[in-house]
């Protein structure tokens, strides 16, 4: 029954929105810095899903075209770069402070 929907851009937007909001809450509530990083990945993935949906000619007649896919490729690559840097920071923080609790990263607090 529920499977009988014909998929439109809006449905993709709903999934993207859920991923985005989940990621945002994840970033806000997790104390583990790697958990925060996972939230960022979810947010980026939600955005990617929207790019793909708008760029898909399967879903919409006058779609964004190839630009949607190209943008999401850039997002994926930049997310890889971002994850590498964030992990390096997290590991450095762990080495220096023996913790990965983001609440403990308060050395610069005056």
């Amino acid at each position: 029954m529920i499977a009988l929907v014909s998929v439109s851009v809006s449905h993709y937007l709903v999934v993207g929105a859920i991923l985005f909001v989940t990621g945002v809450i994840c970033m806000a509530t997790k104390r583990n810095s790697l958990g925060v990083l996972m939230g960022v990945e979810l947010v980026l993935n939600g955005a990617n899903l929207n790019f793909i949906a708008f760029g898909s000619s399967y879903l919409r007649a006058n779609s964004l075209g190839l630009d949607g896919q190209l943008m999401s490729l850039f997002v994926i690559v930049l997310a890889a770069a971002e994850a590498a840097v964030a992990l390096a920071i997290a590991l450095n923080f762990y080495n220096n402070h023996s913790t990965i609790d983001v609440d403990q990263a308060s050395d610069l607090k005056g």
């Binding site: 790697l34 990945e41 994926i76």
Partner: peptide, 28 residues
């Protein structure tokens, strides 16, 4: 992504995101 017709991006997602970034994350 595959269902939206973006085969290349879907494979890229599996390769870089899942196979690369997340392996890195799990190592972390």
């Amino acid at each position: 992504f595959f269902l939206a017709g973006a085969e290349f991006v879907g494979a890229m997602q599996l390769m870089i995101y899942v196979g690369g970034t997340l392996v890195l994350l799990i190592f972390g």
